[in-house]
Amino acid sequence: MRSASEGHQAAAWVVFAAALITSFLTALYMTRACIKTFWGPYRGHGTPHESPGSMVSPLWILAGATLVVGFLGLPVIGPFQDWITVPGHEHHGFETLYNIVLPAGATLIAFAAIFVGVQMFMHERVGFDILKSPFAWMYRLVENKYYLDDFYLNGIVRPTQYKLSAATYWTNQKILDGAVNGVALGARALAQPTYAVIDQQVVDFAVNGAAGLTGFSGGLLRYIQSGNVQRYAAVLFAAIAAFVALFALT
């Protein structure tokens, strides 16, 4: 923190304060949970019984470890400081930042919270009902987890799951697939007129027309190609006469 700027300094204090408040609240609600569970009249329905050894023994191990492990953080006892110290950067390390005030203060705050919790929940010395106070909305807000889950479920998940997906699928079926089917239908729609009009009428007409024309012109040419030698000679003579006349006149 020595090299940190003043802005960072201020931010660090905010974080520190938040951490202290959180440690107070944590101790408070754990106290409440313990008191509500292990003290006072029984409010359940079934018949409570002791857990089997298979469940109790791990609990003992975990509870025992909980008591011990915290002390490993003390520089004089545990190796914890070595694990989080980067070689060559010892001045940023744990032992230089370690300050007995921090754990001691946090522990004091936790004890204070336990004391307050016992007064509130065991002796019920605080007759404050938040639901009847102007802060009821705060209770509702945190009770509903800031409504974040409702926002996720009803604002994002459900609309995507039902509305957006249905709209996308509609697009798929009606627009994209519609275009594909449209092309197919268009091709089929073109097929009938292509056959009935273009092929049977236009092309076939042309073919028939060509045939008719051939027949017609053949009919005309028949007169020329009669096999009559005198007529060939007459046409030949007429042609020669025409050419002679042409050359003579020019």
Binding site: Q161, T168, Y169, N172
Partner: peptide, 10 residues
Amino acid sequence: IYGALCCLAQ
């Protein structure tokens, strides 16, 4: 994205 959304609708 589109494929996943269509899957949701099936």
